[in-house]
Structure formats: C-alpha cells, structure tokens
Computed example of a mutant assay.
Amino acid sequence: MDEDAVSILMSTVEHIAESLDTAHDSWRDHLQSIRNITAVLEFSDTHPDESRRQWQLPLIGVFQRVAYADADSGGVSDIANWCLKQAVTLLQVYPDDVELLTLIGRNWLFRAQRSLAKIHLSEQSSNSSGGSQFVSLSASEEDRQARRNNAEAESRLHMSDYVEARGILLPAVEYLRRATDAARAQDRITGDLLSTEQAAEAFMSLGNVSSPRMNGQYFQQALGYLRTANQLPGYILPLHLQK
C-alpha cells in the first residue's frame, strides 16, 4: 500500500475515532465503511516494518472499538474476527509487542461479555426470586444451607453460558498476562493495562465463572495486578476497584 493510500485510509480511521470519542452510539454509522476496508485489506507481514506498524495497530484498535461498542450483545462478529486475525498475524512478526498482545487479549475479553452479561442477569433474577425475608437459623441449618448454596453454585458452572465464558476468558487472561509481562520487561507497565477492561478484569471475570475449588488463583492474580497498579505514581484505581 503506497503512502497516499495509507494517508486516505488513516484519515478515515481518525474520523471514526473522533466520532466515537464524541458520540459513542455513532459506531453503527461506521459499519459499512469499515466493512468496505476489511473486505479488501489483509495483513501478511513477514518481517518488522515500523512504518507499517505505526498505522496497522491504530487501525485495528479503532475497528475493534466499533466491533465491541455493544459488547454485551455480542458485538459485530465479522469485524471483531477480522481484527483478531490481523492482530494474531502481526504478533508472529512482533511477538513481544505490548500493544498487540493487549489488543488480542481485549478482543477475547470483549467476546466473553455477552455470556457474562447473561450470567449476571440470571444471577440477579435468581437472587431476587429468593426473597429477602430474614429468618433466624440454627448453626446446623446454616451449615446445611451453605452446603446447598455451594452445590447450586457448582451446578451452575456446567450451564452453557458459564462453560462458554470460561472457554473465551482463558485466552483473554493468557494474552493479557503476556502483555503485562512484556510491559514489565520493557519498563512500560501502566495502571490501565493492569486494571480496568484488561488484566485484572479478565482474571476476576474468569474467577467468577470458575469453581470455588480453583478460582482463588484467578482472584489472587487480579488482586496482585490491582495492588501493582495502585502503587504506580499518578495512577488512581477506579472507585469500584478500590474496595
């Protein structure tokens, strides 16, 4: 692709990014123009080229923002798949690239949001239908109820939404873990990478849909990321993560 073509392409990408920044719901307006591009653009790089990388990664990032602007509903699968394919292709050329690893990890994390949203709604419905009346229980009754609740929680883990969420979140945590490891090695670690919508969130989400017999390791990893982020100069954890 020559310089003029790249310039025209990136003008479109910048316009989409600016539109999303000012009006998040505008993502639908850009679907056709993005599909026109993805229909003819495929990355097949076999060796590093910084001049190409400088426009390839922002392009994938903006297209991925559009693809998952409504992640809870499943996103726009064809654009999301295109982004993942291009990022994985480039990762073969740049195996320790923090931005690429993060893009791939977030792609998988966003893919899990539909299942996670359905699980959240189901659990909310279950909790509300259980009633809120307080009843005093004896120690033995509390023990039986706790065992019953644990059994029900274990049973839910075999439901399709939980199984699907775990399957999608496993690559999410793997790529985001690799991203944080690479960032540490390159002295490029940031609070955003460690916490919101990235490493810590991925591990917490995986812990929430995993068996109590093994989810502790995921929560501990998430907590470790949050503690590290909280110690970074100038970074403040979002309020919902400060608990």
Rank of each mutant, 00 (worst) to 15 (best):
E3C: 05
I8A: 15
L9P: 00
E14T: 08
E14D: 12
A17Y: 01
L20I: 03
T22R: 13
A23R: 13
S26T: 10
W27M: 11
D29S: 09
H30Y: 09
L31C: 13
L31P: 03
Q32T: 14
S33H: 08
S33F: 01
T38L: 11
T38Q: 03
L41S: 01
T46P: 09
H47R: 15
S51K: 15
Q54N: 13
L57E: 10
L57K: 13
P58N: 01
L59Q: 10
I60L: 07
V62A: 02
F63S: 03
F63H: 02
F63C: 08
V66Y: 01
Y68T: 00
A69G: 07
A69S: 14
A71E: 06
G75A: 05
N81V: 03
V88I: 15
T89F: 10
E99G: 12
T102V: 10
L103S: 11
I104M: 07
F110M: 08
Q113W: 08
Q113P: 01
R114P: 00
R114W: 01
S115N: 08
L116V: 05
A117V: 02
K118F: 04
K118S: 10
I119A: 03
L121V: 13
E123F: 06
S125W: 05
G130K: 12
G131T: 06
S132M: 15
F134V: 15
S136W: 14
S136V: 14
S138W: 05
S138A: 04
S138E: 07
A139W: 03
S140C: 04
E141R: 04
E142L: 12
R144G: 01
Q145D: 09
Q145I: 02
A146Y: 09
R148N: 08
A151K: 11
A153C: 02
V163P: 03
E164T: 15
E164W: 02
L170K: 15
L170G: 01
P171S: 11
V173P: 04
Y175S: 08
R177E: 12
D181S: 12
R184L: 12
A185F: 05
A185P: 06
Q186G: 03
D187F: 10
I189D: 05
L193C: 08
A199I: 06
E201M: 14
A202G: 05
S205P: 00
P212W: 05
R213V: 06
F219W: 10
Q220W: 07
A222L: 00
L226P: 06
T228P: 01
A229Q: 02
N230G: 15
N230E: 10
Y235S: 02
Y235C: 01
L237F: 02
L237N: 06
H240E: 14
Q242R: 15
K243F: 14
